[in-house]
Design a protein around this nucleic acid. Structure first.
Lengths: 229, 229
DNA sequence: TACAACTGTCACATCATTGTAATATTACTG
DNA sequence: CAGTAATATTACAATGATGTGACAGTTGTA
């Protein structure tokens, strides 16, 4: 689905500019104003990529970066540093503080997009993919279409997101709670059993054009998506 | 048709920037990192235009350019040279090495677009055609005319721009907000639901001469344009 | 000024989607 | 094989999103 970018920037004008542009570009955007907040937000929901100011209140960008690297979930999350001209340029260019790329302010937004995409492509290619295929099932996230074999099938929004999530993580088992988080959203209060119903709806929709069921029920654990080999 | 542009640039940052911007502008983009690769890629698929760095590994831009000129397919392919300030400026201005235009880094992307279009217009005008066709629907963006089958139909300005935007991005789903941005303009304050009304008007106008509705409603996501296959 | 074309907004009808609870079915345990 | 826990299925009411007609304001033109 949409990549989730965490923007850590204390300067309001730039923060708003980045938020606006990344949203427009189709990213989900989280905003943090200082290093501590950044760590908290990154813990709540692992970002797909992080843009971090070099100079931050409370906890500098470099230090925040280091701490992110110590956590399992964010160990490999790409980080782009945003630096003002002159911020210890030597060390920055060395990229030896744990960031994956850096940009010197003022920078061009398109170039930032370009680098963001480059890093995302490396770290989680499936996020940038518009068309995902698993066996004979294919979804186009730009066109919101699902093909099973060579016939289109129709899914409701929730079923579509559910299938999208499954197809980006084939084989992996997700608990109902994980699915609620990933597909419904963090702050949505919905019964866990509701997942069953949507799984059922998705299965029904897919069943029309195929014999085998690509969704495996893992008793007392959750569900997984896999195309029989 | 999308023009196919071959970008030959070894500096990663610039290469990515160019790739990104040209894709965004609606070009198909091929990337090569040095002169040899450029020749191979140009042989595989003849580009409509080439952007070539002056200084390249293995085979300089000038030499690559000469060799392209020797091949039948690429003899008349326009080439824009990208030069760093100071790269033998005298000769470059002479354009006696076979390129059709040149730009000195750092250059502005919009200007590069402008020159690219200018060269394309000269070399293969049909690529910049003002007429867009999808199935039996055809619009002439210069003359502001719309044909459905072989009868003219009349659209208001907003509906025309809406259709124009849809036809340039067939299949893709746009949210109301994206449509407002693209069709109404970024800083126009208009209710999102207004899009619905114009979609309705566009549908009504198109319906007169065709049975199927080319605009697909994607619930909770937006609208997409597509001609049934 | 009167008129026509166009636009944006609202109100209301309609329909798809959703979450839940109730019920049926299945898989595991001993 | 019975008993139990977990999952599947169904039905349904509430919700939310979309389609549509009407209307008033605007603009440009005869």
């Amino acid at each position: 689905m949409q990549p989730y970018v965490l923007v850590v920037e204390d300067e309001d004008a730039l923060a708003t500019l980045l938020e606006y542009n990344f949203q427009k570009e189709g990213y989900e955007v989280g905003m943090a104003g200082d290093g501590e907040e950044a760590l908290i937000m990154a813990a709540e929901r692992t970002p797909d990529i992080i843009l971090m100011d070099w100079m931050l209140p409370k906890l500098s960008g470099v230090e925040a970066c280091r701490r992110l690297r110590r956590r399992e979930e964010t160990r490999n999350t790409p980080v782009i540093m945003l630096t003002a001209r002159g911020d210890e340029t030597d060390r920055i260019t060395g990229l030896d503080y744990g960031a994956d790329d850096y940009m010197v302010k003022p920078f061009s937004i398109p170039e930032l997009f370009a680098r963001t995409r480059a890093l995302l492509r490396r770290a989680s290619p499936s996020l940038l993919e518009d068309v995902i295929r698993q066996g004979d099932i294919e979804i186009d996230t730009k066109a919101f279409r699902v093909k099973c074999g060579d016939t289109q099938i129709h899914l409701g929004p929730t079923e579509f997101r559910l299938l999208d999530h499954f197809m980006r993580h084939p084989g992996r088992v997700f608990s109902r709670e994980q699915l609620l988080d990933a597909v419904w959203g963090r702050d949505v209060y919905v019964e866990a059993r509701t997942v069953d119903v949507h799984i059922g709806r998705l299965r029904k929709a897919l069943k029309k054009n195929r014999t085998s069921d690509p969704i495996r029920t893992v008793r007392s654990a959750g569900y997984a998506f896999e195309i029989a080999a």
